[in-house]
Design a protein around this nucleic acid. Structure first.
Length: 494
RNA sequence: GGCCCUAUCGUCUAACGGUUAGGACAUCAGGUUUUCAUCCUGGAAAUCGGGGUUCGAUUCCCCGUAGGGUCACCA
């Protein structure tokens, strides 16, 4: 191979939104470029005009940017606008039509490709016929036999035509960086359309021409492209170009082990952004879907990934996109985030009204509680919506029989609660969870930890499950704490 | 159906011929300054089947089986 510089690319087509499989492909390509001091480019493959989706390019770019994967060259975002940088552009295929035309003419001239005037009807009929006979549907090369005169006549009459690749005899073999040698008998290959009748190239033509023109050294893409790679190799050979390294990544799978798709859960990167996952976590997670460093480390920043990643350690089989593991990753990253960043994260993320009920002070006080209990920012909204945090604002409704600890009678409970009020009222140290705990420690130890602390905790929140009573008391403040305990005593007196 | 790819705990994976088949997530049990959460400890859990090659196969080869991908003027 004569590529002196590593140049990789991510080449999405703007037909939808970036999904997690695409994110991983982009990430791997990015890592390979970065670890070799190479360049990562982004090219837009918009040769299918019918499937073009408005805004898709921006979406790709934004999602990639969120993940920390930014192109060195090619299509990029400048503020809110799409821009292009680099000397080998344009990097949007619809702006390169003349390039493909030039190369396609060259191919025809050299006899590697030919014009085909067959109508859609004829092609459909042919396919149907072959399928009925149980044969592989392939073009029958009807137009390969056309004479020069016939071709010229058809063209001058304005008959639409496509350009087809003339597949040579033999066997085509290529080396896949992940799977090793892969061979296809050429007789199984169809005379692939290179140029469509609308003057646009097909993917196969465009990808080969552009990868060559943009000096791509590593073609890193999904496994679904394996079977069209031989056609690309034949094209490289026809042009006399060096073939870049190919690496076909295993697919990301649904739970039923089919190719990851919508319908079976969230697949768009945006879905995960909107649920409040941290970019570092998603990146770490998808990086490990199909790759690992070979030792037992699991937490890798993108910088560490650049250092450790290698294509030959990428696995060959598809991986199920398991969000439970993703949640774990996100919790790990949440642990290391500062409280300030955590607060910013919540504020930036939360869409719902309820978060606005929280004043800064309370939010800061319950930060640790929140951080420990959520997997992702969205969970906070869920907790709020389900009223799980309501006791921080409103006095709870208490059920009398739930106030005493298990096997502790009402009179004793009243006594403990009253004593707790006294102890807390006379507390001299600062009102902090640690000090509250310390203040109550001897007394509760003496009377029975659970018998004293359970009713306290329940009095403050009215829930079977909650954070510890000291934190609760701290967040509520001394006055409110005492008021709630008094309330509990009065409930017991009813 | 043709062609191609793949196959280790439920899941993600490690073990580049010799290991009590390792780790992580999830799960279960126990523990930790009441509950929940966190944290700690421990348990259960896998080499698709059949043939070879070899002193020895998860590992190499073949055949099955299963799953997936692909067979467009879509990428």
């Amino acid at each position: 191979m004569s590529f002196s510089v590593v140049r990789t690319r991510f080449a999405p087509s703007p037909t939808g939104y970036l999904h997690v499989g695409g994110l991983r492909t982009a990430l791997y390509a990015y890592l390979v470029a970065k670890q070799n001091q190479g360049k990562f480019l982004l090219r837009v493959e918009d040769t299918d005009r019918e499937r073009f989706v408005e805004g898709a390019i921006e979406d790709f770019l934004k999602a990639l940017n969120w993940a920390g994967i930014n192109p060195d060259e090619g299509v990029c975002l400048e503020g809110e606008h799409i821009a292009q940088k680099g000397d080998l552009g344009p990097y949007i295929q619809s702006e390169r039509l003349d390039v493909y035309k030039r190369y396609s003419d060259q191919l025809i001239e050299k006899g590697f490709a030919y014009k085909c005037f067959c109508t859609k009807e004829r092609l459909d009929g042919l396919r149907e016929e072959l399928q009925k006979k149980g044969e592989v549907p392939k073009y029958d090369r009807h137009c390969l036999g056309l004479t020069e005169d016939e071709i010229n006549k058809n063209v001058s009459e304005g008959q639409p035509f496509v350009v087809r690749l003339k597949i040579p005899e033999g066997i085509t073999t290529f080396k896949d960086e992940i799977r090793g040698d892969i061979s296809y008998p050429n007789k199984d290959l169809d005379d692939q359309v290179l140029m469509k009748s609308d003057g646009f190239p097909t993917y196969h033509m465009a990808v080969v021409v552009d990868d060559h023109e943009m000096q791509i050294s590593h073609v890193i893409r999904g496994e679904e492209w394996i079977s069209s790679t031989p056609k690309h190799i034949i094209l490289y050979n026809a042009f006399g170009w060096d073939v870049p390294v190919h690496a076909h990544l295993p697919l990301l799978l649904n739970e039923d082990r089919t190719k990851l798709s919508k319908r079976q859960g969230d697949v768009a990167v945006n879905d995960y952004i909107n649920k409040g996952y941290l970019p570092e976590a998603l990146v770490n997670f998808v990086a490990f879907l199909g790759w690992n460093p070979g030792d037992e480390r699991e937490i890798f920043s993108i910088k560490e990934l650049i250092k450790s990643f290698s294509l030959d350690k990428v696995s060959k089989s598809g991986a199920f996109f398991n969000t439970e593991k993703l949640d774990w990753y996100n919790r790990e990253y949440l642990k290391n985030i500062s409280m300030t960043d955590f607060m910013i994260g919540i504020k930036n993320f939360s869409q719902i009204e309820s978060i606005k009920n929280f004043n800064e002070e309370v939010l800061l006080k319950i930060g640790d509680i929140l951080k420990e209990r959520i997997s992702k920012y969205k969970d906070i909204d869920t907790m709020i919506e389900e009223g799980e945090l309501q006791y921080f604002f409103d006095k709870p409704n208490l059920e009398k029989n739930k106030i005493p600890n298990k096997n502790c009678d009402v009179d004793k409970t009243k006594e403990y609660l009253s004593a707790t009020i006294d102890i807390l009222s006379n507390m001299m140290s600062d009102w902090s969870p640690e000090n509250i705990k310390e203040t109550l420690w001897d007394y509760s130890g003496e009377k029975g930890r659970g018998d004293v602390l359970w009713p306290l905790r329940y009095s403050l929140c009215g829930k079977d499950k909650s954070p510890d009573p000291f934190t609760l008391a701290y967040v509520l403040g001394k006055d409110e704490t005492i008021s709630r305990i008094k309330n509990a005593i009065s409930v017991l007196n009813v």
